[in-house]
Each structure stands twice: as structure tokens, then as C-alpha cells.
Design a protein around this nucleic acid. Structure first.
Lengths: 170, 170
DNA sequence: TTGCATTTGCAAGCGAACCGCAAGAGCAGC
DNA sequence: GCTGCTCTTGCGGTTCGCTTGCAAATGCAA
């Protein structure tokens, strides 16, 4: 939260590679940290600190929430993790690197669409050209109305999706 | 917050017109409501509920924060008010209508640029074309790096702006 | 002026995130 | 393998933004 979100990502492809990255930076590999790493790899999309602390609802041993926040912040500082705010609700965390995503969030049905950043380059370019502003939709998403909700009359929009349910790019 | 943000705006150009709009909808014009309306008109941009409750730091009589939230929600439901989340920090409220704005927020220096929605139509169009998604940057802004911060080396970006300081479109 | 539903204002609660600090545990050096 | 230093943990408590519950106050129609 206090992190700049702008440090270069270090992409790792396994929990042990992540731990190695920590050691290389003089950070210790504690069991709490191992659990956060494990949860990030086990999750199939961005997850909240709370869910990590719960061991992804019991799949993994649970940890102290404060430590999870502290470790996520540390990880984000070194570029191992990114966090994103998808609408209201808690911030969600994911491993940084290769699979970085940007997001569209429907403010009517709460559906989240994860995109390859390249898919938004047209929009980004339009903004850069006009304002010299470099838009990044990875930390705060694009909010609006999805296709379904745009087409539907107000009172019968798509049903609200469960929080944290990220719909993969089409 | 629980409001859909999608109801049609009713544009009013004076506090008394706002009160009239309330009465027309069967709502009562209490002194607490009058104060919220007065604060919204007195403010020169989006303001937090807290600052409204404080009477814009003492310029106006202060009110109970809970009532302010409740009234802002009511006002938003009837389309008199809009609220926007500019980065972290509290939601900010402004009168709906004619002067609606969309926002660019620099995540490095926190500077906020308020834009006429038409200026973002190119970007919006690019997104609509590709995803059928109707982007709205009035409730959640576009976040990224402003011109100054894009150009500067990381360690000497523009100084962070004070919260709630909205820079008018160029 | 009365009656009553709407609003208010206070206290308490809640979710998300953070701080301080004593106790615990990595890891480098022996 | 042990020692000792330092980093980390885990707990309690706190803050921030916002909401809920409820009794008392107050617009406003009649």
C-alpha cells in the first residue's frame, strides 16, 4: 500500500525460485514467508491478504494476518508481488512478472475481466498522445459497464459475480 | 457506496434548486441536508464526507459525519451527487450534472487532473471496440504516470501533491 | 398546533490495514 | 552442531473509512 508499484518485476516460476530471490536480497526465508509464497503459487488469480492468512480457506496452514501484510509489502518492494484494487473490497495480491494482467471491472455486475496488457495499448496510446500520461490499469483497473450490462435494461443486468472471481480474457 | 453510480444526473445550479429537487422527490429539507448542499456548492472540487462534516474546515457549521454519509448516499441515489475514488484515501463527493469530470491520477506524485469526459472518448472508443466494454473514469479514475513523472528519472519525480488537490484540465 | 413519518446524532461495530513490542527463529561464523 | 546476532513473527491494540441501531428531534401536511 505504501509501496510505489513501480519497481521492476522479478519473475519467478516456482516457490523455491521465489525463496532464492529472497535470500539473494538478504531476506530470510521463514515459514511464514514460505506460506505466503505457496499461497500465491497455489491461487489461480489475485488473492486477498486475508485469504492468504487463512491458507486459501484451509488448503494450506494458516498464518498471522499482520505478517502476511508485512510480507506482501516486502515482496512488493523487491518486485516479486503486485497488488491490485478491483473496485471496493480488499486489495488483491499476485505474483509479478510474466503473466501480468490489467483489468476491466463491471460496476454493475462486478465481473472482472483479466487482460493481457497489450490488448489495452490502443487505449493507452490514445491517452498518452493527448495528455502525455502513461496509463497503467494493473493497479487500479478500468471500471465501467461490461458488454452484457451495457445491453441490458437497467433492472435486469447480469447477476453480480462473487468477489475475487476473475474471468479470464476472452 | 452501495449506490449504483449509474442513475441519471439531475443538474442544479444553486443550493435552493437542490433543496427544491429534494422536496419534489418527497425528501425533507433539514438543516443537516442544507449544510451538505452548501458545502458541495462552496467546495471547488470533489470533497470528502469528513470535510463536509467539518464544514469545509470551519467555513460552515459542522455536522454529524454519519448524517453526512447518509445524506450523500441519498443525494447520490436521486442523481444529485456523484462520488469518486481517487487512489487510496476517502471517497470524494461532488455535485452531479453539467460539470461532470473524469480523472487522471498520477500514482507517483498523486497529482489529479480533472478532464472533460469528451477528452477521453478516443480511449473509451478503443476499449468499446475491442471489448464491448463501456469505460467510465468518473467513479474510478485512470491511474498511471503523469507527463512529469514519466519523463523524470525514478528518484526525482514531481513532489507528491496534497490529497484532494484537483488540478484543472489544461 | 398537532401528529407522525422522516431525519438526526450519538454510540457502537465492522472490514481493511498498520504499529509496537516482546518472544521466536534464520543464518553466518565458529 | 552450537552460538549469537539480527531479522521476523505473532499478538494486542489502533487507525481509517464507513455503516448500523436506536432513541430523540424535527420537517411538514393537515
Amino acid at each position: 500500500m505504501t509501496v510505489s508499484h513501480l519497481n521492476p518485476a522479478i519473475g519467478v516460476d516456482s516457490p523455491s525460485a521465489a525463496c532464492e530471490a529472497l535470500r539473494q536480497r538478504g531476506l530470510r526465508v521463514s515459514s511464514a514467508r514460505r506460506l505466503v509464497v505457496a499461497a500465491l503459487f497455489a491461487a489461480d488469480g489475485p488473492v486477498s491478504a486475508e485469504r492468504i492468512a487463512d491458507g486459501l480457506d484451509g488448503q494450506l496452514p494458516s498464518t498471522d494476518l499482520t505478517s502476511v501484510y508485512r510480507n506482501l509489502e516486502t515482496f512488493e518492494e523487491i518486485g516479486l508481488v503486485r497488488h491490485v484494487h478491483l473496485g471496493h473490497g480488499p486489495g488483491l495480491y499476485a505474483l509479478a512478472g510474466q503473466g501480468d494482467r490489467e483489468y476491466l471491472v463491471c460496476e454493475s455486475c462486478d465481473r472482472i475481466q483479466a487482460l493481457d496488457p497489450a490488448e489495452l495499448d490502443d487505449a493507452r496510446e490514445a491517452i498518452r498522445e493527448r495528455f502525455g500520461f502513461e496509463a497503467r490499469f494493473s493497479h487500479f483497473p478500468i471500471v465501467g459497464l461490461c458488454e452484457v450490462c451495457t445491453d441490458s435494461p437497467r433492472h435486469e443486468r447480469a447477476p453480480r459475480a462473487r468477489r475475487e472471481r476473475v474471468v479470464r480474457a476472452r
